[in-house]
Amino acid sequence: MYKIVKKQELTTNIYLMEVEAKRVAKSCEPGQFVIVRMDEEGERIPLTICDYNREKGTITIVFQTVGAGTKMMADLQEGDYFHDFVGPLGCASELVNEDMDSLKAKKILFVAGGVGAAPVYPQVKWLHEHGVAADVIVGSKTKDLLILEKEMEAVAGNLYVTTDDGSYGRSGMVTQTIKDLVAEGKQYDVCIAIGPMIMMKFVCLLTKELGIPTVVSLNPIMVDGTGMCGACRVTVGGKVKFACVDGPEFDGHQVNFDEAMRRQSIYKTAEGRAMLELEEGDTHHGNCGVCH
């Protein structure tokens, strides 16, 4: 059993939990994920690691309530336990294994969309701790839905917040901010984009045009998370990969996003489809085409 030592509602429907999981905290690296189950009947829910504390033996996760499983999870309180909490799964972010000198010479841009700010955070923090200041764009639908702004500010070189409705920070999609920054004369050697599939798709279309190599972190449907079921298969550069063991990070310019988005909807109920529509907004329609 894995104790919840801290719970915080970051904003409507987005929760942060710090959970005791000693083995995971000892060995995890930025970019990896865990699978949690809240009780004996619970679904296995994959979540990217948002932060970790090796001394305390804890892992921080952030999740949005999108279905029955995450809604029930949101009812758990400090002092309650997760029935299962396994990880770290997947490969660590490439940054972690890169030569420090070459990493320090790089200009790195992170692009986070919505709850994607959570998995971006440990990477920016890791770089910060290793003396690398990265630029970070955080996009959110509205001011109210923005998460981890302060935390991100503390570790980012420059932080650019943008809201779709212009209610806070810059106005418009993250892609607009990328365009603006480049127009302002900023140059980037690498971009790491994490957020809704549709955001990653459009970021990749743009960065390809701009010639910025881009890494994305995919969160497809999965069951075991160790390579056994193959539910998470994605096509990258024309080859089939398992996101759980080969990823979750991939070269964004090689990912077949249309297929990946389609596959995400396999088990969507009417409720789930509505949520997906809400999450992906107007950009959703006419792209994956499976919801209606």
Partner: peptide
């Protein structure tokens, strides 16, 4: 349970 050898340890 929940220990992936090669990952957790």
């Amino acid at each position: 349970t929940n220990v992936v050898i090669g990952k957790s340890t």
